[in-house]
Amino acid sequence: MSAPALEVRGLQVLVGETEAVRGVDFTLEQGARTGLIGESGSGKTLTALAVMDLLPDGLVARGEIWYRGRDLLRLSERERSRLRGDRLTMVFQEPLSALDPLMRVGDQVAEPLRLHRRLSRTEARARARELLERVQLPDPVERLRAYPHQLSGGQRQRVMIAMAVACSPDILIADEPTTALDVTVQAEILALLERLVREEGTTLLLITHDLAIVSQVCDQVLVMYGGRIVEAGPTAEVFSHPRHPYTLALLEAIPPIDQQLPNGRLTQIPGAVPGLGEFPSGCPFRTRCLRETSCCSTMPEMAGTSHPVACWHPLS
């Protein structure tokens, strides 16, 4: 077996004195498509930003992030920025704010190639055109000269993806890449993303709150809640036999699309997602959990090999 593409050990992200990500371990296997599921405050985006070294000012990452035998958190700023946009790339939720409004689309797509591959202007232009064709942007030649605001949301996201795959990265992180898009466009973008990472063997980390998307795209899944990973494993396994009460509750809270519920009521999770720093000690879910007992005030470790769960009372 080849070495994993990325190995995260004990990752913490501190917002001031508050731990927003509270010691997270996970491994991305080479070429795997992993879904990171979480709600607001789960720490899923901060985890991704820590991997990318894009945390906003004042936020501190601790722990270890191993990539090709090197701990990213120990690298110099220069070495990290050399990797960013080249070996590790990211697609954001809102392409309009992630693209430079005053730069032509072609130049933006060419930018990573000129920066990391030192391509000449003409070479980079030609590559940019190929890339726009690969992401199936209509009229790629004309679009090279367009500005981001002249494109639709879906087209902008295609441009973002073209930039992200320009240098054939090892790892691509997509943070809610389709949340801002219409359902029909979302399906196209997801299909595109999946095809590209398959063709290139790129390792994908797909961050989303939408479980259905994860079930469509990802073979592995990580479930985050309150800054911790509470369950992990193969998607089919986790979704059909969830072991953490939170995962089960999430799955049951989604109205099924293919059938009408007999009594018209969904299984609901009591309470609300606590704010940052307001999660209870121990298991972050325990105050909303029906299986809570006294031992839940200590944080359970992730236990199990292929489908580990952090719960004192896992479902069988």
Binding site: V183, T184, Q186, A187, E188, L190, D210, L211, A212, I213, S215, Q216, T235, A236, F239, S240, H241, P242, L248, L251, E252, I254, P256, I257, D258
Partner: peptide, 15 residues
């Protein structure tokens, strides 16, 4: 038809 096909469906559900 397009809309219905585009909906991401949960492929697995807990029984």
């Amino acid at each position: 038809v397009r809309l219905l096909e585009a909906i991401p469906r949960l492929r697995w559900r807990p029984s």
